[in-house]
Nucleic acid binder design. Structure first.
Lengths: 334, 334
DNA sequence: CCGCGAAATGTAATCGGTTGCATAAAGCGT
DNA sequence: ACGCTTTATGCAACCGATTACATTTCGCGG
């Protein structure tokens, strides 16, 4: 063994008096070698503290045994459960999940381009709708599944919640409670989730004969602080809505907290409804009424679609998962 | 170019009428080749859509250009900011951060063992105190920095907040407010963070001549729901405390929410203090008084220590970052 | 005791870049 | 014009494991 380095197959082969081929087989296909040989190899491995060089194996095998998830913002609790779902499925197949945060500008995208390569991962699950399509439909890029968000013009299967229907459920709930003065706190205007959710809301409002007041549509950033900011804007309005439909729970919580801090009572003075059903939603006071999407299931589904893809099967191009309304205390009949 | 495959250096070399060595240099050390050659190579690269095979490069170079963070639970918002801090530093050095979730039993640890290999990452930042030391002091394992939590018996630098002092600050704050009936909601009993924090609390209580009531020390799991659970236990007590010192903000929020739902007023009926200052803490009602630790700074620091290690420098074996008390509305003078 | 298929093992090519060393070409000072 | 330093490029070994193919060994029926 070269002095400064970790042991290699060669070293193990010498120690066990076999060829490198046999060592390799003893480790990855134990059924192919005799018991005596296997024991000798394993003994040498243990003794030398050998572990395979993954780069060499990946190079030769032309696959990596791992899947990469590209997440727009790891700090967003929304994603964590999806990741957990993905992980649970991949583990059953012996695949390792790695996660990279895609936050940042073009210079980060360049980094992502080197990540999105067959020699890095066997498959990609992309949760970020803002990546340039170019790096993902490159021939060197492994199979891609898009989850939650999606990238226009990028082929390949998608898995997502029924965002439009979520908008419908939320809006209808408020209307059923007698609200007609409904504000919206959306995500970034160009975000596909927000576009879909808005569509559902708009449909229901129109159906109910409620005029869409554009001054009651606020644009947020899916963050607690943008919810807080929105609350301030609403409080400053001469003509206030009496319900706010938020496009995610974080904004709803931020908004609700700020309303309360200013002395308003939620839901008596204002109903608030969120979207996603993150853990926090059940624990704030009052409990946040929200549109539940099963994030773990979404991750599971995305992973299964990816596995299909890797197996050469043809998964459905689009999978839409149902959402449901979860009524807690933050909404009240007018 | 072989038909089914991505182009290789060979192909680019042929297209640009140079050797593979020149192609490689044109891409990674552009200053070493003439402008004409460089242009020819880049043109061929663009035309063929070439991207390097990372496995091959890593194998030859004996490094990967990436750092791996092992996180016990990605779903915990506590970690996300640390990750962000790490990322910001690594980017400036052209390193890519990958994250893996270490959640799970021994079978997952086996997976982690193959991740913790020089051929996978140039360095490791371990945020999980529960990994077996064996896989991290293996000779094939790249340099390791432990952050937040740490593993007994594992050498290598550590970066952490001053948890003991955090316990001191929190306890002293409650005592200064006149509380003497102080309960604690800790993390898992064997968790090093909890051990340190408890130590600080114990010191202050002893100093103030307050007996430590073990029936007022509840063990949680750092989660919202374990905070909720603890609230129920406290409410069921015949002899209730009038302040609860929680070992993290999530539990504090879970606890506070449940107390409020049962009709108690925080902070009038009970003061609640947390630890960490996660985003949510500022947005719940009332705002959560907490011990602030600068998670981004912690990540930054851990990354810098790792870079030192990679550069062959000898960073300090232990870095302790100061914490501070952040008083909001959830604590009140008795 | 021969022959043949199965089981076990070895040999060596291969994955795809990178880089030390050698060589060639160009610049330069005197 | 000559040696000498730079600069530019090519050649080929190398990183470490895997695996197709070849070879040996073994068991066993005839």
């Amino acid at each position: 063994m070269k002095n400064d380095n970790a042991p290699r197959v060669q070293d193990i082969a010498r120690m066990a008096n076999v060829s490198t081929a046999t060592v390799s087989r003893a480790l990855s296909r134990p059924d192919l070698v005799s018991e005596a040989t296997r024991d000798a190899v394993l003994k040498a491995v243990a003794e030398a503290g050998y572990t395979v060089n993954v780069a060499a194996r990946n190079l030769r095998r032309q696959r990596t045994g791992s899947v990469l998830a590209l997440v727009p913002n790891l700090a967003n609790p929304f994603f964590s459960k999806i990741i957990a779902g993905i992980n649970s499925v991949l583990r059953t197949r012996g695949l390792t999940l790695l996660v990279a945060d895609t936050e940042g500008g073009p210079e980060v995208h360049a980094q992502m381009a080197t990540l999105a390569h067959r020699s890095r991962a066997d498959g990609l699950i992309v949760l970020d709708g803002c990546l340039p399509a170019g790096i993902l439909d490159h021939p060197a890029c492994p199979p891609v599944v898009q989850a939650c968000e999606w990238i226009d013009g990028l082929p390949g299967p998608r898995v997502m919640a029924d965002n439009r229907d979520g908008g419908v459920l939320a809006a209808r709930h408020l209307i059923d409670l007698g609200h007609r003065r409904i504000a919206q706190l959306t995500g970034p205007a160009n975000n596909p989730l927000t576009i879909e959710r808005s569509r559902g809301v708009r449909e229901v409002l129109a159906e109910a004969g409620i005029e869409g007041r554009t001054d009651w549509i606020l644009e947020g950033a899916f963050s607690l602080s943008s919810g807080q900011q929105a609350a301030r804007e609403i409080l400053a309005m001469a003509d206030r809505p009496d319900a706010v439909l938020c496009h995610n729970d974080e904004m709803a919580c931020g908004l609700m907290g700020e309303l309360q801090r200013t002395g308003l009572d939620v839901p008596r003075d204002m109903s608030v409804i969120g979207f996603d059903n993150i853990d926090m939603a059940a624990h704030v006071t009052p409990g946040l009424t929200t549109v539940e999407q099963h994030r773990t299931a979404l991750g599971v589904c995305a992973a299964e679609v990816l596995l299909d893809l890797l197996d050469g099967a043809s998964p459905p191009p689009v999978t839409v998962l149902p959402v449901g309304l979860l009524v807690r205390g933050s909404t009240l009949a007018r």
